[in-house]
Design a protein around this nucleic acid. Structure first.
Lengths: 169, 169
DNA sequence: AGAAATTATATGACTTGTCACGTAAAATCA
DNA sequence: TGATTTTACGTGACAAGTCATATAATTTCT
């Protein structure tokens, strides 16, 4: 009744089944799927990249800020922004001005075109979050986020933590 | 009592606080942290990359297989493996042989050196999973994975799903 | 004030991951 | 059997991210 090649596919299936419960293995595909879904939503409302969308959103919500602040909010390396922003300026979405009171900093600000791009994208991206909210209740989201918090805390522990002799004498 | 600059930092903090509950925003940093932690663990036991480690592990657990099967297990694009494997062969970790019965396929197999590299890395990576298990009970892992399953199912829905007029007449 | 340390940004090199497209081998179907 | 479709793999081009290092401006310390 079962396929004759079962002996060949079995170890593969077994492997997949076991990895299903491995959080570390699950993360990359889930993250990637999220990135792709986000990109598809963005494709429907202009041609913003993920980084661009996040940046427009942050600037819209929190007002003009420095590159570092953007990086802090997005929890990404500042170099990611440092590379993305000149392109966004070229596209007319933002302005970048050296801070007069602190010459190291660059203050990034939405332009009218940037605001327009935000306005075009925002409802579509809001729809995405609304769609998620149809699948997860607010309570479930909180629980899920709680797991993410705890996982992240674990992931950011210094690695040595896990290699010290942990015998409590 | 509060800092005088609160008016400046407030919108930033507010933004961070609000994004904290946004699953889509939380995923990239969590994924990235996991990748970095994995890389640090791997740095302690040889110099395998993430992809290399995953591949050695899969081959060790499920035996020789094709590039496609590796990609399926890892839920990644075949091109990722297609690029990584020649390097691994060059390092002597695997052999790649054209399948005699199906000339399209390449069968990847662990070499003794590959097995040795696996044996070196495996205990360290097992320790990582053990450390996670100290922080999450088996039950919690199941619940967490359940959320990931549901999220992934949502993320892989065709995008149009979310744009059809969903008024049930 | 001057030296030393810190901070903000830029940039090169790299990993993980995608998609699109080309080619060869295999499977299907007429 | 021969034409068409499918499948496996390779490869170029790209996005998102990192780290390390350099430079300039600011802050801190003596």
């Amino acid at each position: 009744m079962t396929e004759p090649q079962e002996s060949t596919t079995d170890p593969i299936r077994g492997r997949i089944a076991r990895e299903h419960l491995n959080i570390f293995s699950r993360l990359p595909p889930v993250y990637t799927a999220s990135r792709q879904q986000g990109a598809k939503f963005l494709a429907r409302c202009g041609n913003l990249s993920t980084v661009e969308w996040r940046t427009l959103w942050d600037l819209h919500e929190a007002g003009p800020m420095t590159i570092r602040q953007l990086a802090v909010i997005q929890r990404a390396d500042h170099s990611l922004l440092s590379r993305a922003l000149p392109d966004m300026r070229r596209k007319g979405l933002v302005t970048m001005a050296r801070d007069r009171s602190d010459g190291r900093q660059t203050i990034v600000k939405l332009t009218p075109a940037g605001r327009a791009a935000y306005d075009r994208a925002a409802p579509v991206m809001a729809r995405r979050r609304a769609a998620l909210a149809e699948v997860f209740s607010a309570e479930e989201i909180r629980a899920f986020v709680g797991y993410l918090d705890r996982l992240e805390a674990f992931l950011r522990l210094p690695v040595e933590t896990h290699f010290e002799t942990e015998e409590t004498p």
